[in-house]
Amino acid sequence: MTVANWEAVYDFYGPGRRRDGFTYPLLALVDALYRPRLRIADATVARLHRLHSDGVGIVVAVNHPSAHDPTVLAAALFDRRIRFLASGTGLTKDPLFRGPLRPVFEYTGTVPVFPAKNYEGTASDIHEAAATRLIELCVGRLVDGGVVLTFVEGTNSSADDLRTLRLESVKKGVGMMVAGAREAGAPVAVLPLGLAYHGREHAKLPPRRAVAAAGPIVVWDSGPPPTVDEVRAAVRDGIDEALTAAWS
Rank of each mutant, 00 (worst) to 15 (best):
K117Q: 11
V3N: 01
R182L: 14
V30T: 10
V148W: 02
A210S: 14
G57V: 12
Y10A: 09
I217F: 05
R50T: 08
D69L: 06
A75V: 07
T244L: 12
R208V: 06
G146I: 03
T92W: 12
R80L: 08
R98W: 10
P112L: 14
Y119R: 06
P112N: 09
T122C: 11
R39C: 10
Y107H: 14
P70Y: 05
G16M: 12
T71Y: 04
G223M: 12
E201Q: 09
R18M: 09
A246Q: 00
V59M: 10
D20K: 13
V174Q: 12
F97E: 03
P216G: 03
H52R: 09
G175M: 13
S124N: 06
L96N: 07
D221V: 03
G175R: 11
A46M: 07
V113S: 04
R163K: 08
Y10L: 15
R80G: 01
A186D: 09
A245P: 00
I217P: 01
A4M: 10
A233Q: 14
R19V: 15
T89M: 13
P25T: 04
S169K: 10
P36A: 10
W6N: 00
L167W: 05
D31T: 07
A67E: 11
E106T: 12
R209Q: 09
E230F: 11
D94R: 06
P216N: 09
D144K: 13
L51C: 03
V56H: 02
S222M: 08
G146W: 06
V3T: 01
E201L: 04
T2P: 00
D11E: 15
A131M: 10
P226V: 13
V188A: 12
P15L: 13
L149R: 04
S222Q: 13
I217V: 15
A179L: 10
G238F: 06
V113C: 06
D54N: 03
D160V: 02
T132S: 13
V228G: 00
T244I: 07
I135A: 15
V104C: 09
A129K: 00
F78G: 00
A210E: 01
N118W: 10
V30F: 08
A234W: 06
I239A: 08
A8D: 13
P225Y: 12
P103I: 13
V190E: 04
A75W: 11
G223D: 10
M176A: 14
L91E: 02
T164A: 15
D161W: 04
N5M: 11
V231Q: 05
Y24F: 14
T2H: 13
V231A: 10
D20V: 09
L191V: 06
H64L: 12
R47M: 07
A129M: 04
P100W: 13
E201D: 09
P224F: 09
P65R: 08
A130W: 01
L38H: 02
T122M: 15
V211P: 02
H202G: 00
A179K: 08
E120M: 08
V104D: 00
Y10R: 07
T44S: 05
S53F: 05
I40A: 02
R232D: 04
Y24T: 02
P225H: 11
L77A: 02
L101T: 09
G109Y: 01
G99C: 14
V170R: 01
H202N: 06
V59A: 08
D161I: 10
R209I: 03
W247K: 00
Y197V: 06
G223N: 06
L134V: 02
P15Q: 10
R182G: 11
